[in-house]
């Protein structure tokens, strides 16, 4: 703790308040996780008995399996494509002329600032026009539109700290531009690539509103959860939520503690 922040009681109040805020953030999720292990047919806290009953239910239900399958399929298609499009764009911005770089950067991240409801509405419209709604042909590009900006940002940040003379050194040693990028630049900016990939996967996996417009018969996991929730609050929803949470939390922790978010080390140092 640094010194010089005055008397201890305001500081203590600050600590207590912040802990309460964190409790507010964490407790609901913790309760959700605990409840998901109930053995009863209804939700209550604390559960009278524990077991994996609802996880078994989730794993055996074809509805949930299909929904998870579709969500994973979309995310698996979206992640590499997003990484490729975003990384190409980030390279283009990094290596292109200074003039116009700012505005092109703004274009590349512009889908981020638009409310997803409006984006979803627009994409639904063009999907109807092309007759591809309710298919992967609509889901994947739609998700890409919101994931690519994150890759542009994370890879772009890595490229900014990348020393281009490394690439020149490789070229002077006999590597063509492409081999220099492949052997030197990409490995060095790997943290940015990993961050971009994880962002893309999670965002696609969790995406709701755009898919909600596009889907009629097909159900992704968030859509299935939503319709189940609207119909009835059953312990199975807690179980599937916990599973989702586990996946995203693991990926998030990977990002955070390897210091890839927010320039990691620099801010935390």
């Amino acid at each position: 703790m640094r010194e010089g922040y005055g008397s201890p009681w305001p500081h203590r109040a600050l600590v207590v308040f912040s802990l309460l805020v964190i409790f507010f953030l964490v407790a609901p999720l913790a309760i959700l996780v605990i409840q998901s292990f109930t053995n009863e047919s209804y939700l209550s806290f604390p559960p009278p008995s524990f077991g994996f009953r609802w996880y078994r239910e989730v794993f055996t239900s074809s509805d949930w399996r299909d929904a998870v399958g579709l969500s994973v399929l979309i995310a698996i298609l979206v992640t590499p494509l997003s990484l490729i499009l975003g990384t190409l764009a980030a390279f283009g911005l990094d290596r292109g002329p200074m003039r116009g770089r700012q505005s092109l950067y703004a274009v590349m991240i512009s889908p981020m600032v638009l409310p997803h409801i409006v984006l979803g509405l627009g994409i639904f419209r063009i999907a109807l026009q092309l007759n591809i709604e309710d298919t992967l042909l609509a889901f994947v590009p739609a998700h890409l539109t919101i994931t690519v900006p994150f890759v542009v940002i994370s890879v772009g940040a890595s490229l900014q700290t990348f020393n281009v003379t490394l690439e020149e050194a490789a070229m002077s040693l006999g590597a063509s531009r492409w081999r220099a990028v492949w052997h030197i630049t990409l490995p060095v900016i790997r943290p940015g690539l990993i961050a971009g990939a994880i962002f893309s996967f999670i965002i696609s996996f969790d995406e709701f509103i755009i898919t909600f417009f596009l889907a009629t018969y097909e159900q992704t996991l968030p859509l299935e959860m939503f319709s189940t929730l609207m119909f009835q609050v059953k312990p199975s929803i807690a179980a599937i939520s916990t599973l989702t949470l586990a996946v995203t939390a693991a990926l998030t922790a990977m990002l955070m503690f390897r210091g890839q978010i927010l320039g990691g080390g620099r801010i935390v140092k």
């Binding site: 999720l29 959700l32 969790d206 709701f208 959860m225 939390a249 998030t252 955070m256």
Partner: peptide, 21 residues
């Protein structure tokens, strides 16, 4: 930072489920 940032990457619907419960 972990507790503040992790929500960014946690499904909105999962959080809403938690509050419903």
């Amino acid at each position: 930072l972990f507790f503040i940032v992790s929500p960014l990457l946690t499904s909105i619907i999962v959080r809403n489920v938690a509050w419903v419960l």
